[in-house]
């Protein structure tokens, strides 16, 4: 891994896009979810699973990254479309804003998740980037 490949604060630009990550809500995820949060019926995907998928997309879309980034705040807007276990969630990740304040590197990442043409979640991850 070359040092210059790491996503550092200076490389982010508002409006930048990082592509779309497709994540299947497969039986392994279902089992992991239930290990932590208890039973989850087949017919309804917990909205929290969309949050976990959002994090996976955000992490997979922006690599490699420095160690020690901090997730500081979050907005989430869920629609009334309810995905199911087994669906594939397509999640687009973008940079919305960046700001250096009091020596900390704040970056806002936009998230938009959909199942086929149906938007299920949008939101903003507000991070303190490590370097």
């Amino acid at each position: 891994m070359q040092g210059e490949d790491i996503w550092t604060y200076r490389r982010f630009e508002p409006g930048q896009t990082f592509g779309v990550v497709d994540i299947q809500m497969d039986p392994i995820k279902h089992a992991n979810w239930q290990d932590i949060f208890g039973p989850s019926p087949e017919e309804t995907l917990p909205r929290g699973m969309l949050v976990a998928a959002m994090m996976e997309a955000y992490i997979r879309a922006i690599q490699p990254r420095p160690k020690g980034n901090i997730h500081a705040a979050q907005t989430l807007d869920f629609t009334d479309h309810m995905p199911r276990w087994g669906d594939t969630i397509s999640i687009a990740v973008s940079c919305q804003a960046k700001e250096e304040k009091k020596g900390r590197f704040w970056v806002d990442f936009g998230i938009r998740a959909a199942v086929e043409e149906n938007r299920v979640l949008s939101g903003t991850i507000r991070s303190i980037w490590a370097q």
Partner: peptide, 20 residues
């Protein structure tokens, strides 16, 4: 999120959260 889901189980809602 689970607490919200269990509170509003089976009710058609949209949720908007702003947290830190």
């Amino acid at each position: 999120m689970q607490a919200i889901s269990e509170t509003f189980a089976n009710q058609p809602i949209r949720e908007h959260l702003d947290i830190r």
